[in-house]
Nucleic acid binder design. Structure first.
Length: 511
RNA sequence: GGCCCGUUCGUCUAGGGGUUAGGACGCUGCCCUUUCACGGCGGAAACACGGGUUCAAUUCCCGUACGGGCUACCA
């Protein structure tokens, strides 16, 4: 069921790695598009050449890919509304900006950044701490409203640098219905005359976003709450361009807040708290500019998506685990919450654990294999699958598959001396030697058989389980933590098990 | 400062004029298990405050407080 009228876009700016709040915005756009049978579009907002960071666009694309949020239109993908990079649409914005000037909805402004700063300083000195270029102050600035027409024409002809500013009406009000917040109203007298076209000929976000959303036939603008304040200007712009009738609907998302303290989540919070705030790693020259992502921390993308979906949205049922597909079915803008949501890393880890537990061992083995190789462990496929089966319920982040069971791959490197001291008695030596004997004579190395055999062995000698099992475990793993002993023996196999027992007895004796 | 937005357990949230205010994470007790986990059953823990409206407000309205966002020729 496709609905050609529903078109949403994710429009990030390639100024660095996309943080997790951006991923959530992308997710909500994606979910809404899928839910409605509409189209999910990626648009790159690279109108600020000063802040352009090479590699950032690729990072955005790779991040979306890792998350499984594939755009149907976008740079490198195509679609009937391209180009999808704003830098490639420069001429379009210029045309509309000049049209607005012709229609008296905007004007040329010749004030240089230096002059504007000087003006701000001057006002500050007078005690006015918030100078605004608005429908009052524009009358004392250098623009086509205050200058004689001839002078304006002369400046333009001379190629003097100019910007085009929106001529905000005096004494009016703008309102719109926000899909998550209801009616929002601004007095035009509170709004400044936003720059639409910069001196370098590039549009500002405000201009580009309206022109593109209109031309790309965007039906719903779903974006972060940081845009709510400028939406008044955007509505004014739609009106000025005569596009009010097809203006998209707005939905402003609550912000993702820092895990601790105040404010919205920022790049630096990751490094500061040792948690990921980016989907995937970001490479950079300088060490302090490099970041690891959720992927590198060992998260499954499905878990990240599920976690993110619930940061500011809730289906209203008690189900917590949702696949991307299920989210597409359950999503609705009405259920987006209004208040900011604090980033809860513990919850993210819990989701990851849930997804690891729900993934079958063969699949986990595939995911874990590269981590094993990185560590230098060579493991057979069968062994790795069985191993994943044993460890699945004991792992929260993927790298723990490597660390938590390292003894399986490199033997016992460290013994738990404290427990050995507490439990080892010299008279246990013959018992363990007899156990080795028993194992060597056992043909079936299956956990159930082993369990029966070893339990009988202990009973025959009138020993307690507690005298044997903990030491047996330490002999094989070095630690008290780990899967059921019989399962371990089964996985290790006869030769390895017997070998480890022999070394361990020696070690226990010395201890 | 101005404008805009928000406020239910520590956190994410459900709910909604009359409820024992529900779930999840985290914390915690017990059970399972002679390990560690997983799992199961419990527990502590919330309607920011003040006024209205109403027979009745956590829920509706208004204030206040607090929090957040914006306030660039950045997005």
């Amino acid at each position: 069921m496709s609905n050609k009228n529903i078109r949403v876009r994710f429009a990030p700016s390639p100024t660095g790695p996309l943080h997790i709040g951006g991923v959530r915005t992308a997710l909500y756009n994606y979910l809404f598009a899928k839910k409605m049978g509409g189209t999910f579009i990626l648009r790159i907002e690279d109108t600020d050449q000063g802040r352009y960071v090479p590699g950032a666009e690729n990072y955005i694309v790779e991040s979306l890919k890792w998350c499984g949020l594939l755009p149907e239109e976008g740079p490198g993908i195509g679609g009937g509304h391209g180009p999808y990079r704003q830098s490639e649409r420069k001429a379009i914005y210029g045309k509309y900006a000049h049209k607005l000037v012709e229609n008296g909805k905007a004007y040329y402004a010749f004030d240089t950044p230096e002059e504007l700063n000087a003006k701000r300083e001057e006002e500050r000195a007078k005690g006015n701490h918030n100078f605004r270029y608005d429908n009052v102050t524009r009358n004392e600035m250098k623009n086509s409203l205050t200058l004689p027409a001839a002078e304006t024409a002369q400046k333009l002809a001379a190629g003097e640098a100019f910007t085009i500013r929106l001529k905000v009406p005096v004494g009016g009000a703008v309102s719109f219905q926000d899909l998550v917040r209801g009616e929002v109203t601004f007095q035009t007298d509170d709004l400044d005359d936003k720059v639409l076209l910069k001196a370098d000929g590039m549009p500002t976000y405000h201009m580009a976003n309206i022109v593109d959303d209109h031309l790309m036939e965007i039906s719903h603008v779903i974006r972060g709450e940081e845009w709510l304040s400028s939406t008044g200007h955007h509505v004014l712009l739609y009106q000025a361009l005569g596009w009010e009738g097809t203006m998209p609907q707005f939905a402003h998302l609550p912000l993702i807040l820092k895990p601790t303290g105040k404010g919205k989540l920022s790049k630096r919070d990751g490094a500061k708290l040792g948690i990921p705030v980016f989907p995937i790693a970001w490479e950079a020259e300088k060490e302090e500019d490099r970041f690891l992502g959720f992927r590198e921390f060992g998260f499954l993308p499905e878990a990240v998506i599920n976690f993110l979906a619930f940061l500011g949205w809730n289906p209203g049922t008690e189900q917590e685990i949702f696949s991307l597909e299920e989210l597409c079915g359950a999503f609705s803008i009405e259920k987006i919450s209004k208040g900011g949501a604090r980033f809860d890393y513990d919850k993210a880890k819990w989701y990851n654990q849930q997804y690891i537990q729900a993934t079958d061992a063969a699949e986990l083995a595939k995911i874990v294999r590269p981590l094993m190789e990185e560590k230098g462990y060579s493991v057979s496929d069968d062994f790795l699958v069985d191993y994943c089966e044993l460890m699945r319920d004991r792992v929260v982040l993927l790298p723990e598959f490597v660390s938590a069971g390292s003894y399986f791959f490199e033997g016992v490197k460290i013994y738990d001396d404290k427990n050995i001291a507490k439990r080892w008695k010299p008279e246990l030596k013959p018992v363990f030697e007899a156990l080795i004997d028993l194992l060597e004579k056992t043909d079936s190395f299956e956990a159930v058989t082993l369990e029966r055999g070893i339990k009988d062995f202990i009973a025959e000698r009138e020993l307690k389980m507690g005298q044997v099992f903990p030491l047996l475990r330490i002999a094989l793993a070095g630690t008290m933590k780990g899967p059921a002993v019989f399962k371990m023996i089964e996985l290790l196999g006869k030769t390895e098990t017997v070998g480890r027992l022999k070394t361990a007895i020696e070690y226990f004796e010395k201890n």
